[in-house]
Design a protein around this nucleic acid. Sequence first.
DNA 1: CTTGATTTGTTCCACATAGTGGAATATCAT
DNA 2: ATGATATTCCACTATGTGGAACAAATCAAG
Lengths: 108, 108
Amino acid sequence: MVPVLGEFEQLVLIAVVRLGDDAYGATIRREIEERTGRRLSISAAYTTLNRLEEKGCVRFWIGEPTPERGGRRRKHFALQPSGARALRTAYRAFTGMTAGLERRLKAL
Amino acid sequence: MVPVLGEFEQLVLIAVVRLGDDAYGATIRREIEERTGRRLSISAAYTTLNRLEEKGCVRFWIGEPTPERGGRRRKHFALQPSGARALRTAYRAFTGMTAGLERRLKAL
DNA sequence: CTTGATTTGTTCCACATAGTGGAATATCAT
DNA sequence: ATGATATTCCACTATGTGGAACAAATCAAG
């Protein structure tokens, strides 16, 4: 079963892929903000990450406390096979729809 | 004001761009089904088109009855400036997020 | 020329899923 | 305790989805 990803779910999942082992709340948020230029609340990212986890698209593990700083432990996320399939489907849908239209879309 | 487009709203808006003057319920549905490989009910397309119209992303006009066939008149849709901006923003967000990752995403 | 069947197309409605942000809470170092 | 970092809770809005009903046109009888 491959869930259909929402617009924001796609962005979050891609951020997780990009960040690899360093994917957790703050870095995911920053990655999306920097790459899309859109502001987002940190809780939006967490809500979506939790839902992606419930659907089996990602898993997480709790990091060790790093001695150099205070603060709660990080919750790291990683892509799961089901998430990979969902992301592939979304990516193909988008590229299939936009194929040949790239220039026009950029020019809008 | 540029609305954030949902995942399906993006597909519908792109289909409208692709189809030009021939964009109406049935063709929009077919375009999305063929290009994404995903099945969709016709009413899903209409609901989304209506919402896009309310937001000012598209406009519509009612076609003349064509003599060669029965059936109700077609409701044709066309992109509006606000829809163009929304689509551009969505396109840039997606390409910005996926930049450099194309091969990996296809390979998933 | 009017009635009914057929075709094509759209609307209604109800519910499920996803998006969003403010405020509260937790955990770590010092 | 206090400050720093990080996550959860909660409430609400917006999108996604499809079944069923409805509307409007053509065509073929009678």
